[in-house]
Nucleic acid binder design. Structure first.
Lengths: 129, 129
DNA sequence: ATACATGCAAACACTTTGCAGCACA
DNA sequence: TGTGCTGCAAAGTGTTTGCATGTAT
């Protein structure tokens, strides 16, 4: 494992990573920023955004783009699916196996190169229903 | 078929609906606005947004929330999936049957009420690969 | 006549970026 | 020591909203 990109391990970056790892509730950037601020109020929001993006690109955290809302992040990097409550907007894991077959089905679909997929369920969480 | 909501059939609304029906390329609100403007430059962008939202709620068009990008709309209202090219950002239909089983699998999942799901594939379109 | 719809502009939520100074390797 | 990173503020997207006016029913 070797990367061409020379990334520095700044205090801010370590703090963002640690924070996401300690949050189990799929925080979005704002929520991470709030947590980070509790420990070091000097860290700017732009830095949180930049580091979340970088850490996701490096594979240290999972970036979950959410339709109709702020993207959120997950310390669990293995591919998995999510459900978003349409009332409280919270995002939860769905304990469903990754649908490899889905990917197989449309591989080479009409000249497309299909790389990833995501499934987002929508409905009501136990608290809101 | 009866609706409690008294909606008026304004020129603007008819124009937005007709425009989406004539566009087969999953336009987002901006693209619809551009088309609408060609016919009637007086129609405001807010009106296009308002009418797209209303028409989708009424079931006349399909609203497709796109992660990492502008939501788009589809004259084809039957549930189906999409693929977004990560290079040109265009959205295409995927000719894959609606995965009813997916829904069945997690119905009543841990107290959730699951209402809908969407699958968005990502990769490269034939033009970009 | 009167609710609903419109145009406009401003506000909104989320995210990125330009820049000058700072700090990690 | 130098490039990568930071904080700040401003700008950039995509979308919604308050308000006065307009219009379909």
């Amino acid at each position: 494992m070797h990367s061409d990109i020379k990334n520095r391990n700044t205090l801010q970056r370590k703090l963002v990573l640690e924070t996401v790892r300690n949050m189990t509730n799929h925080p979005d950037a704002e929520m991470v920023y709030d947590e980070v601020s509790k420990i070091n109020p000097m860290v700017s929001k732009a830095t949180v955004y930049r580091n979340l993006k970088l850490l996701a690109k490096q594979g240290h955290i999972l970036h979950i783009p959410i339709p109709d809302g702020a993207d959120c992040f997950d310390f669990n990097c293995s591919p998995h699916y999510h459900i978003k409550c349409r009332k409280c907007s919270r995002v939860f894991d769905v304990d469903m196996p990754y649908q490899e077959n889905l990917y197989q089905n449309i591989k080479n679909y009409r000249g497309f190169v299909i790389e990833t997929h995501q499934i987002v369920f929508s409905g009501l969480c136990p608290d809101c229903k």
